[in-house]
Amino acid sequence: MPAVSDMKDAGTPAAAVAGVLDDFDSVADAWWPVIFRYALSSLRDPDAAATLAQDCLMRAWHNRHAFRGDASLRTWLMQIAVNLVRDYGRNRRLQFWRNLRSMPSSVEAAAESLAGRDLSPEARAAIQQQVEAVWAVTATLAERQRTVFLLRFVEEMDVAEIAAATGMAEGTVKVHLFRALRAVRGRMERRQ
């Protein structure tokens, strides 16, 4: 059986990992950073992200007996996280939007890391501008588009996994992805 830490990237089928849920501490250790990251990119509030990640693991623990082999562990956990993020947005609408509007410090981090790369000044400026555009646009996207976008471009999930985690049809996922990307390019083009 693969180690729990190997499963987060591979999306190992649940049937192969169902027994791993018995050692829930290992599951929590392996997935805590992933769930926190998704929650942070969605909510842009570290405290809320930590609370949500903890809630996510708790729900997974309580529902661990319902975990079947028809989804990967990652898909199953992200499904719980996606629902929690959606509920958070609906229950704390004002706080949620306030956080989204604030430009995250990840933009500064991206700028710092770009400064050390082997890039022409033009390419660096273009990429920096795009990173800013992505953060700005994801704050304005409809909930479903933002969810799909973050699962694809932060968590690197494929269309089938995103469909399973969100309950959307694969075609719908592709449409949301395309619209979100078009919004990013639209913003970049307006700024040029």
Partner: peptide, 30 residues
């Protein structure tokens, strides 16, 4: 360039999350 921008966005999100990642609280399941 567009794909690079998306990759940098991902890299920034990952770095940001790593910097802010709190220790996992003792599991309530424990």
């Amino acid at each position: 360039l567009f794909e690079r921008g998306l990759a940098e966005f991902r890299g920034g999100a990952h770095d940001w999350s790593r910097r802010l990642l709190p220790p996992r609280p003792a599991g309530a399941w424990q």
